[in-house]
Design a binder for these strands. Structure first.
Lengths: 266, 266
DNA sequence: GCTGCTGGTCCATATTACGGACGGTGTGAC
DNA sequence: GTCACACCGTCCGTAATATGGACCAGCAGC
């Protein structure tokens, strides 16, 4: 019996199937916003039927949430997404709070600095500051979303969660990890190591010759929700320098955490 | 016969009723994101039933598109909106392109500079740069959305559209204009005046004692899609200075238009 | 404790969204 | 030229889904 794809997968009737599907589409489009997505790809990646996807995209296009390139027929996030984002931004001003710290780090190190933020089971790159060193390592685009633990800032966040939450996240993300050259056990080991060190370091598994250091930002209850990290080519990342960078990052994260404690949100 | 509120208002069956409604809700929440919105207000403002609104908000909350304050029960735009906005931003980089021009203007004039962008029948404030003059006139929040023609940058955009489009916009927005102290005929007259002058000027109808000048940005086909504007208290806005500011703005908009023509999108 | 106002939930109903099947368009092979 | 293929887009009968009237629950002010 090939499983009737009806009602609800877990048994509850939510009454919002189409909204859930539309948002699933939006996230899928966002995940490939650089190249854009074709109708068929969206259908297969989301597991929805072509006509359904098409009908929804037509609606989203009319509403300016999605933009279709007239020539290639590819779909991108639309202007309304950007505009709603502008309106939402003031409530999520971590970026502005961290901005001075990030420029300080970029100036001090010459390398590229990233601000990463937790979003459910994922982490999202929220900001990036280039350093002055001529060989740049842009491992992350702003807006990029990846499973928690992939990427060094992301690993720092994961390592700053409670024991059971770490387990929960890794288990939930298991099917997606292999895409990034990770397994649940290898990731669990890396979390352990980061917890021992007090910061996250690693060679990028996806990009040889680049090494990063990450330090988590914690909220008042002491659990991690974001991270600052620095990336550079491995030749600039001796053991000694890594330790120095970790200390520098720790200083800055402490400073930001203090600011957040004083009235600011999050 | 009290009109059965069913099917479709114009006769076409779109097949996406709930997505349209969900997005209507999102826009309504965005329009009041500073104070947040209560369930009943959203229901009455959108014309939807309370249970429908509630069900949708529950779904949107789970998906992080909407955030509900635990104490007040008020609804706000959620973190996912911000994150999707980050991903969409690179395609809509007018803001970055205009940034240098805006700081130049702010430094030269000492007053506050606004970047406004068209979005359908509305205009959205996309960026703001404060000047050094101690009395600030923050007439627009970033992300603020208003009918085209309300606000000086917005008026400059409207005045740069084709004759029939101006008419179409004003007619479509008629019911919303009174809220801002305007009528279709008064707005039409202001458009005429701005077209004659080559720029938009006016006292803020909603805020006495503040005067602004706006100059539109045009795409390659010569139609307006955005505007730069400057606001200050009226005492700093003599006829002579208004003309000077208009010339300054014209220089900068020309410059930005040239950049846009060279390869950059939009 | 009663009244008014709000947020939140239930569930029978019929409206809405689904998706199999088909038409249309553009491209590359020969 | 036309055949084949891959993809985008649309139609429409069907049943699953979203709807909204009715109801419950919490809270503030008389």
């Amino acid at each position: 019996m090939p499983k009737k794809a009806t009602s609800e997968e877990n048994g509850r009737l939510s009454g919002t199937q189409s909204i859930e599907r539309a948002l699933l589409l939006m996230r899928e489009i966002a995940a490939h916003n650089r190249t854009g997505s074709r109708l068929l790809d969206l259908a297969s990646r989301t597991g929805l039927q072509r006509p359904t996807v098409h009908r929804m995209l037509k609606c989203l296009t009319v509403q300016d949430m999605v933009l279709q390139d007239a020539d290639t027929h590819r779909y991108f996030l639309g202007p309304m997404v950007f505009e709603l984002g502008l309106t939402a931004a003031p409530r999520f001003n971590l970026r502005e709070i961290c901005h001075p710290a990030m420029t300080r780090i970029a100036e001090a190190t010459g390398d590229t600095v990233f601000l990463t933020q937790r979003s459910g089971l994922d982490s999202v790159c929220v900001d990036r500051q280039e350093g002055t060193f001529p060989i740049k390592t842009f491992t992350l685009e702003i807006g990029m979303r990846r499973p928690l633990g992939v990427g060094t800032g992301s690993l720092a966040i994961l390592s700053g969660l409670s024991e059971e939450e770490v387990k929960h996240v890794i288990v939930s993300n298991t099917p997606r990890l292999s895409e990034y050259g990770l397994t649940p056990t290898s990731l669990q080991a890396q979390v352990k190591r980061a917890q021992k060190l007090g910061y996250a370091v690693r060679e990028m598994p996806t990009l040889a010759g680049v090494r990063s250091v990450g330090q988590a930002l914690h909220n008042q209850s002491g659990i991690a929700f974001a991270a600052l990290s620095v990336s550079a080519i491995s030749s600039r990342m001796s053991e000694k320098r890594v330790a120095e960078l970790a200390a520098l990052l720790k200083n800055e994260t402490r400073f930001v955490e203090k600011q957040l404690a004083n009235g600011d949100r999050r």
